[in-house]
Design a binder for these strands. Sequence first.
DNA 1: CTTCATTATGCTCGTATTGAGTATAATAGA
DNA 2: TCTATTATACTCAATACGAGCATAATGAAG
Lengths: 320, 320
Amino acid sequence: MEVKSTQARRSAGRNGQRHVVDADLIAVVIAVTDGEPRVLTIGEAQALPSGPFELGHRSLQSGLRAWVERQTGHPLGYIEQLYTFADRDRTADERVQISISYLGLAREEQSDRSAHGWRSWYDYFPWEDHRAGVPAILPDTVVPGLLAWAEEAEDPNIRRDRGLRVEFAFGLDDRGWNEELALQRYELLYEAALVAEATRSWDKGNPLSIAGRSMIADHRRILATGIARLRTKIKYRPVVFELMPPAFTLLQLQRTVEALAGRLVHKQNFRRLIEQQDLVEETGETVSETRGPPAKRFRFRQTVQAERTVAGTKLPLSRA
Amino acid sequence: MEVKSTQARRSAGRNGQRHVVDADLIAVVIAVTDGEPRVLTIGEAQALPSGPFELGHRSLQSGLRAWVERQTGHPLGYIEQLYTFADRDRTADERVQISISYLGLAREEQSDRSAHGWRSWYDYFPWEDHRAGVPAILPDTVVPGLLAWAEEAEDPNIRRDRGLRVEFAFGLDDRGWNEELALQRYELLYEAALVAEATRSWDKGNPLSIAGRSMIADHRRILATGIARLRTKIKYRPVVFELMPPAFTLLQLQRTVEALAGRLVHKQNFRRLIEQQDLVEETGETVSETRGPPAKRFRFRQTVQAERTVAGTKLPLSRA
DNA sequence: CTTCATTATGCTCGTATTGAGTATAATAGA
DNA sequence: TCTATTATACTCAATACGAGCATAATGAAG
């Protein structure tokens, strides 16, 4: 086995003609206002904030924060890395582009509501919003299109495989709709060429694709990655609070979760869940902004461990 | 709001003096043999396989596969991305090094048992193996060292914060040991300078640090990331099977899971869990390699969706 | 050839968690 | 004053989960 230590190899590489790459940072910045999950966009709402990773940046995260704040004037709260991918630059001298994507959560200010490129993420993924029932686009367009794509394969194995993947991702089987599969669903639509990005028609000036508003390059895929990650994460880490104002009612919290999940939750059980997890405490105030009795206001309990709820069982452990 | 489209920006950057970076791929390759979880290492078992991302590589994944197979002669099965981080190169001309790490699962061959750099990951993290009870190093060395570190802080807030973090990560509180927190534990030890990497003593020729065998640069941290990820993942995705031979007994499967989790599981309940999930099917054969009655052999049911078990509830959804 | 430790496997049982719904009271708007 | 709407407390059944008992089959030890 031929082995060079990393140290040795790095030195060699540095002096030789080392292949260098460009590094970009891309941000999926999410906020929730008026019961809508919104993503921060630039340009004609067709791109995510992004920029090159520069020497001045102390770290990837700080580089990202700098870029987002410069481009949008918006500070970022919680940040987590999403995914890194590489693309040979199609147009240029065989240079490789590496993109490192991040998910950021922000408390959107009232002031910059729709003005500054905050768009509901359901503009891009209309089939993902099941709060008012199954969206019409699913039975009308998306599912028939996908099933047709599955059928058009010549190889029966591929047909079967495609069919099963569609059924699973879109909940056509017994398991039902699973909101966490947002990325798989987008990827199926891409494979089936039902989204504009996959058809090269978008640069002909049609920003509204067959299914949902599109974005440049692979930005919509990155957004889908962020949505899926967030939908998964709210279930085992108290990240929702990064999106909430300092004080809130349980119904507001519920509406935020519902906006993210794209589904309605059972109110009584939601409250039971929140309270038994000991994540919030009453502020003492009550508000009555709507009908019904006044609601108590709560705040997030800053109990050092935002680590909490890292439960995760599913292995039948034994004590011995 | 100043906005340039990504397209425009990229062109500008390419012609101008664009800051370029070096990109490395680093692999955490895991296999389980003889009931031990093993990681593929190179050099003096102090480094993970790694290499530069090159132009010839079609994608990051294929680049990684190429490197690992060339360095070790070992094919990779399952692969998933772990994390990307950047370090200014300490020694050189302000160049930035980007490292993209991957987790890979392999079925280790019998032939290259210990010879080819397969090391038990508990060599590096002896405090993580709780299969034979709490390892002595925890009460003897690790915990006292960490508590002392917590106490030595002058600011009482920092003292309290450190204390709580140690209690949480090492299960000193009521929640008990949580095997998924492997990374947090390593990071605490690093912060407390209880691992060699943090003390700069390792390059003085001492490969055995205060707590566990060390590695160059941040490789041990990357390994901890991989371990934590795998320990989390086995609970909701059937990735264990990537580590198993084509046919196996339920006890072998259990031993593999236990090796990864570093904990023993309840045998009867483990079988119930596996069977109700419908992940395996009998091959029809039985074997009696040990005492006791012959055990049935099983194989993984290749039911298209290795996607399965993407359950994940924890939100009280409602039907309406 | 017995004995015994070890393993496979089936079954029970109490408790916690989860999904779903009923019930009651408080309030704003019509 | 009515009524739709909301907050909040409870109940109830269905599972899921942790823990353990029981039985049978086998290899190793004597």
